[in-house]
């Protein structure tokens, strides 16, 4: 579950790394910052509405 009151975890910056696009190609490859996955984000979050609606 996502805790609405909890601040997002600190981001982990991944270093730019070189991954060859083709054999012999040293093209640079960049990732964006990829935050750590919260351990409690495993399942679809609970939902709290009424089955037959409200209003």
């Amino acid at each position: 579950m996502i805790d609405k009151n909890k601040a997002p975890k600190e981001r982990k910056e991944y270093k730019t790394m070189a991954i060859p696009e083709e054999p012999g190609d040293d093209a640079e490859y960049k990732t964006m910052a990829i935050p750590e996955e919260p351990a409690d984000a495993e399942k679809a979050p609970k939902k709290a509405g009424k089955v037959f609606g409200e209003g």
Binding site: M17, I19, Y29, T31, M32, I34
Partner: peptide, 13 residues
């Protein structure tokens, strides 16, 4: 994204 990085698959988020 993390798995692609670990496997050396060129990927971008």
């Amino acid at each position: 994204l993390r798995r692609a990085e670990a496997r050396g698959i060129p990927a971008r988020g």
